[in-house]
Design a protein around this nucleic acid. Structure first.
Lengths: 126, 126
DNA sequence: TAAAATTACTTGTTTAATGCAAGTGAATAT
DNA sequence: ATATTCACTTGCATTAAACAAGTAATTTTA
């Protein structure tokens, strides 16, 4: 029988075709969205992510960056002119996560005491 | 010295005062937001959550429901008139998670192939 | 330019979380 | 009264996370 679109199964690493479940398969853990947050706030280097107050272990950071590269949510570029050090940047797909991070920020500020809005994250409001 | 607002530290289970980090402390795992999704879609019973296609283990479901109750994101009510079985409902705080779930849904539908919008989730669009 | 420091990791080990199968007692249905 | 469903709990195997060190390749400093 010929393939039909409706026959297309979800990739094996995906728990269901539900878009919410898919999103959680990609970034549903305690660390990935914090790296995204840092990128939104303008951080670009491994050391910058590692220096964030939550204290992500470097092995976890390394693994998460690999996953984000795989999913084309971030890309690598040279840190500066002629440098061999790398910088990470959000791709368009990565920037499309901004409404999610913004909605999470808004929810916590509205409902969880002791959370504080950071300066420089005005972009997350839209 | 008298207490000042700026002296108030985040609760010990919170990694930082960042609202994004706080949100992840509350529901930053592979399962919690799927339960929220089910609640948004109108499911109310333990067995309904357990029957979702992603196949949440019952011990995990049990633990997650406890946490959601603790955080006052869901509440328990009688499943039906005079019944001793329980139903779960989103509180106002829980319904405030809708924009997050909706943004995740929109992102996956836009960027991840093979995801499918479900009927009955029109409410998540706003 | 040689030495010191930084960067971006990796490796090994401990600890916690997740996943799975099975079991249980109360509630409901037959 | 018996069977079935419901909402869990328990025990165990597997996987992931956390923590501490170490390392090779850069970059900075003396």
């Amino acid at each position: 029988m010929a393939k039909r679109v409706t026959d297309k199964p979800p990739p094996p690493e995906r728990r269901s075709p539900c878009p919410v479940a898919c999103a959680l398969d990609v970034f549903g853990d305690r660390w990935t969205l914090l790296v995204i947050r840092d990128l939104v706030l303008g951080k670009t280097r491994f050391k910058d992510f590692a220096a964030s107050p939550e204290g992500i272990p470097t092995n976890v950071l390394s693994e998460r960056l690999s996953r984000l590269l795989e999913h084309k949510i971030v890309s690598q570029v040279s840190a500066s002119e002629g440098s061999k050090h790398l910088a990470y940047r959000l791709t368009e797909k990565g920037r499309a996560l901004l409404p999610i991070v913004g909605a999470m920020r808004d929810w916590s500020l509205a409902w969880e005491k002791g959370t504080l809005a950071q300066l420089g994250e005005a972009a997350a409001t839209n």
